[in-house]
Design a protein around this nucleic acid. Sequence first.
DNA 1: CGACGTGTAAC
DNA 2: CCTTTTACACGTCG
Length: 354
Amino acid sequence: MHMDLDSFYASAEELRHPEAKGKPVVICVFSGRTEESGAIATSNYLARKSGIRAGMPISQAKRLAPENTIFFSRDMEYYREISERVMDLLDDECDVIEQASIDEAYMDVTIKSNGLWESAETIAIWIKNKILEREGLTCSIGIGPNKLIAKMASRVKKPDGLTIITETQAGQFIENSKAKDIHGIGTKSLSILESMKIQSAKDLAQANPLELEERLGKNKARLFIEKAKGIDESPVEPRVAKQLSRIGTLKEDTRDIESIIAKLQDLLPELEGRLVKKDVKFKTVSIILINSKHEMQTRSKSISDTSDISAALSIARELLEKYLSEERDVMVRRIGLSVSNLTYSKEQKSLGDF
DNA sequence: CGACGTGTAAC
DNA sequence: CCTTTTACACGTCG
């Protein structure tokens, strides 16, 4: 089973700003560069009617938006609280849960449903009702014989949908899908597939594996063909973070190390908070840079295990100095810090601890 | 084989 | 005009 909260951030804002209900709602991530600069995190269905989409620059959304549109600044802390409660609720209704993002989860209900589609449907309806009762939110749920089909099924009817694709129906369902609707196929892969005249999942399922491997690499090619046949054996399993990062935008593009470090220092407390909450040690420190051409670059260094965030900062400075001496003609637009190679010390008991 | 950097993808 | 966070594959280097 796959559950997706409908336009989650927008719905969450409508909960605490009832006057926004019935109006287009847009959730913005302001970068702080200028008054209005930034991107759209999400929008409600009314705003989507005007062509406003996630990822779009705020300026563009403002041009598209009708007069009565309400713009909110994204508030992760608030959304996380709600998300945690929803996930806890789901946790009680399934055998295993895999939280895929703040607003999405896969649930294995094989045992809870006794392997019966009818019972799985009953569980889904119960979940939808509970989420609505407790949180005032609607969601869309897909049920299928595996994660891939469940995920694709959850997209069939939204918002507030419930779609069941049984094992018997799965073949038909996937055959009638387009390649681009298969989870994991993004713009780059799609254009490669299109250049090979592959548009439907059916085309992909019948594609020449060797030719596909040449163009996509062995791993991707095999995975895509499996998916195009509706096959997905990946288990529903709890996700454990392998990396924690935080990134921010500089006031203006710069090469000045002190102003870049200053921005890193702003980001540090939040990262530290998450580190402490999870009680993890890290071994690898990376800086993430987005240059003025919007290209992402990373530099990393491994050290001996530590939980000391200030150690991370001094490694970051070192990496940054090296980066600036290597990359003589780039300006830095955005800077971030990531820690990986994590070891968990504390026993994690509930989902809420993650 | 581990470390490192990039590309792709999803949210 | 251009956000944030995470995962994984792959190539390269030593």
